[in-house]
Each structure stands twice: as C-alpha cells, then as structure tokens.
C-alpha cells in the first residue's frame, strides 16, 4: 500500500506534517466540575473531572485517578480487537495518572482526590493523544491549578516518511510509531510510548515531529481555553467583587 502519494499526499489527503482538524468544546457536561470534548479528525473523546473532593476513607495509592474507557460503539472489528484496545487504554491511564500527579500542585492533592474519566466515543488513530488532551483540558476547565499546559501527539514512520497524527488506517501498519506527552514550558517529554522496532535515528525524527505537533496542539488548546473564558466574561456580569472570590 502506498501511504504517501508521489504528489506528497496521504490517504486522507493530508500532507505528512499536517494535523487533522481539531475541535474542542469545553464545559459541555453538566453535573461535573469540568469537562472537555475533543475531536481530532474522526477520533472523538469526552473527558470529565470530578473533584477535588474529600478522599474516601481507606488508603489510596494516588490522589488523582484517570480512567480511560473505550466504549463498545467506538471501534469496528471483533471482540478481541476491542479487548486489546481496552488493555492498551488501561496501560495508558496509568501513565496519564502519573503525568497528572506531576502537573497538579501537591497541596491540592494532599487530602483530596480528583477523578478524571475519559470516554472514547469514536476511535480513529491518535486515540491516546486525544484522551490526554481532553483530560488536560477538562482539568483546566474544572479550575484545578496546573503547572503547565501540555499536549500529546502521535507520529509514525511509514515508508521512511515521518507522518504526524496517524489515522487508524496508518497506525494499523507494523511501522515505527511514537506518541508523546510534551510539556512546552520545560520542553520535556512527560510520557513516551513507542510501538514496533525502530532505529534511534527514526526515533529522533519521530520525536522531533511529535514535538512540533504538540506545540501546534498546545496553541490550539490555549486558544480554546482563552476564548471560552472570554465568552464567559462577556456573557456574565462584570467582575465579581473581591470579597466574593476570595474564599
């Protein structure tokens, strides 16, 4: 199969370094403390944040928990492929929980817990990148203090061309793939997940491309957060008085 045509177009008509269309909707779920809907191409995920609230009695290993659930309607294919995706989701939830613990200041998490639930509505490649982005946006929407905004991006090396934001068709190939969660301010990688055999040069190429992708995504995510805040400011009454917001 040819993944990049001689004209330099991918199967879905994108350029190799072109992200899919990103759509972000914040605070769409009522009854949660914060929520975010992220659509990256045909991948759709919904994240909700509950908390910070009092920690339940009985020791807990971690004060922040992130659960990624892949719904049965989200993927085509047989039961086995759905189960595999579910296992991968569990693995990635752990990594994401770890990354979030670093991101939220310790004094918030001391005796309180935050639950982040991510539901995959439609899976079409770049699934975990979309989940991570949605989870972070939901945390920011909930007003949980964060050290930085990060973004996640998925890349792959198909037919020795580095492609950003793989679609499901592209990510099904046995080709080198890397997904990262990137912290822009510290310019560090919080999570890296690689698939299939690759050389170090291939990894370097993929990481560079993924970093570029993350920076582009962070810009879009910041824009979404800022515009939702501006919208909130313009629709509701002028500034709350100092007394109201202090406590």
């Amino acid at each position: 199969m040819e993944f990049v045509s001689p004209e330099g177009l991918r199967l879905d008509g994108r350029r190799p370094k072109e992200l899919r269309k990103l759509r972000i909707k914040l605070g769409s779920l009522d009854g949660t403390d914060g929520s975010a809907f992220v659509q990256l191409g045909n991948t759709k995920v919904l994240a909700a944040v509950f908390g910070p609230r009092g920690a339940p009695t009985g020791a807990r290993s971690s004060a922040i928990s992130c659960v990624i659930a892949v719904s049965a309607i989200s993927v085509q294919g047989d039961r086995r492929s759905k189960e595999r995706l579910g296992r991968q989701a569990t693995e990635f939830s752990r990594a994401l929980t770890n990354a979030m613990e670093q991101l939220v200041p310790a004094d918030i998490l001391k005796n309180a817990c935050i639950d982040v639930h991510v539901q995959v509505l439609q899976a079409d490649g770049g699934l975990f990148a979309a989940c991570a982005n949605a989870a972070l946006l939901a945390l920011a929407n909930a007003g949980v203090p964060l050290r930085d905004i990060c973004a996640a991006c998925h890349t792959g090396l198909l037919e020795s061309t580095a492609l950003v934001d793989l679609s499901a068709q592209e990510s099904m190939q046995q080709a080198p793939q890397a997904a990262i969660l990137y912290e822009c301010r510290t310019q560090s990688i919080a999570i890296m997940q690689t698939d299939n055999k690759m050389s170090t040069t291939a990894l370097e190429e993929l990481l560079e491309l993924a970093t570029e992708g993350c920076i582009a995504l962070v810009t879009a995510m910041r824009q979404a957060l800022i515009s939702s805040t501006v919208q909130q400011l313009s629709t509701s009454a002028p500034h709350a008085s100092a007394a109201q917001r202090r406590d």
Partner: peptide, 26 residues
Amino acid sequence: LVGVKQVTKTGGQKPLVEVIRRGSQP
C-alpha cells in the same frame, strides 16, 4: 489557572499578581 490576570498594588510591599477565574472554583 485559566482566567484573568490581575495586579493589585499593596502598600509598601511588592504588588500582588493573581489569576481570577469565573464560575465554580475547586
């Protein structure tokens, strides 16, 4: 936080920088 930056001048000391958020707060 996501919110509006606000600088308050305090007498003598360094000015205070805050980020004020609308709506519910944790």
